[in-house]
Design a protein around this nucleic acid. Structure first.
Lengths: 209, 209
DNA sequence: AATTCCGGAGAACAGTTGTTAACTGCATGG
DNA sequence: CCATGCAGTTAACAACTGTTCTCCGGAATT
């Protein structure tokens, strides 16, 4: 079934990935709406017109980047919220996982944070869609937790959204500490942990009115 | 004391404001990092070179917009968190206030949400600074509340940050419902209310360990 | 009343942008 | 082995960008 794709398509996907990588790097210091197609091809070392063989416009390049940054993140999210261990352990695990992800894929995180409210509508929509899926998956995971007994589905969705937003905020705060002294990073981790803890307390004492 | 400034400076501030207004409108469909100086002057009906009489670059224009959007918002924030009435009333009041502000200054809200993580560093810094001031002011207000007895200052700051971030999230969600059916807007208000309520519950049962 | 100041206009610059068309060379499928 | 397909190239286009320098007219100052 895994049809090893020919020399031709392989090379195509290679330059496509090179375009994505170059764009992601250029986007560290600007927004997608100011990213020029020539700028990207120049960085890759390819003719401007070659761009069109892969993307109709830079907006579509952006949508592809959303897939790359968030598409394969769903399993990780799922296992993070899964009800293993006590509340404190789960929170610590989640914060560490976020910190690790930011350290490993900083430009992905930056791109998502930047373009979530950015100037390119299709990209905003793609991000919203992915985040919506995250929220739904978190809700489903929360529903499994015995702690959620008696909770309305609306409230579970509310809580899931709160978690997802908090995840993004934390990630973007870690991002800002990437080339800062270690103490800053510790402080962000500490504050994020306490935020989650407070939400956790609220959750425990929530009355499903 | 109110020295009515001469015809000259009055006219200058007029075109300056016109530049700000035009920029804000153009920024509804793009990011600051792609906003051209000529684009702005063209919209105002003024020569490109006139721009330099007011701002060294579009980045500085952006910083000025941050002041305009957030600078005069501090009193409002302060009174929102002030401990009057019971928790439910305060939450309802806050959500209504956010909704009203978004309806009145949608482009301000959009600009802040967009450029908070945008591609122009000085603007990001200006926004961060204003939000930091908000957080500190909220912390100070929370400290007055008898409910905060025994709270560490760190925890109060954590809670204040949580409120400020939640405020921004809610504002940006209202923004997306601006030209949507009324039901959507009601749903956003409802979810925001419940989020705040959950935080409120967490706050009430917080143990200042 | 004479002089300085200064917001804005005008023209020109080198460099950039997205998009088009027609091409070349090579992997692919018959 | 030959014909087709197609990723990438080359050249050219009109339009646009930020920035400089020189100038103008009228308010502000003396």
């Amino acid at each position: 079934m895994s049809h090893t794709l020919g020399v031709r398509q392989a090379q195509k996907q290679r330059t496509r990935q090179a375009l994505l990588d170059a764009a992601l790097e250029l986007l560290e210091e600007q927004s997608l709406s100011s990213l020029g197609l020539r700028e990207v091809t120049r960085a890759v070392g390819v003719a401007p017109t070659a761009f069109y063989r892969h993307f109709p416009s830079t907006a579509d390049l952006g949508v592809a980047l959303v897939e790359e940054a968030l598409g394969r993140l769903h399993p990780m999210i799922r296992t993070t919220v899964t009800p293993d261990g006590d509340s404190g352990e789960r929170i610590a695990r989640a914060v560490e996982l976020i910190e690790g992800h930011v350290r490993e894929y900083p430009s992905h995180v930056r791109f998502i944070a930047r373009e979530r409210h950015g100037g390119v509508q299709p990209v905003r929509a793609a991000i919203q869609e992915q985040l919506g899926r995250f929220t739904e998956e978190v809700r489903a995971e929360l529903a499994k937790d015995p702690q959620s007994a008696g909770w309305h589905d609306d409230d579970l969705l509310m809580l899931a959204g709160l978690y997802v937003d908090q995840m993004l905020i934390t990630a973007s705060q870690f991002l800002e500490t990437l080339d800062a002294p270690d103490g800053e990073r510790r402080r962000v981790a500490e504050t994020a942990t306490r935020r989650l803890r407070l939400i956790s307390v609220g959750r425990r004492h929530w009355t499903a009115a």
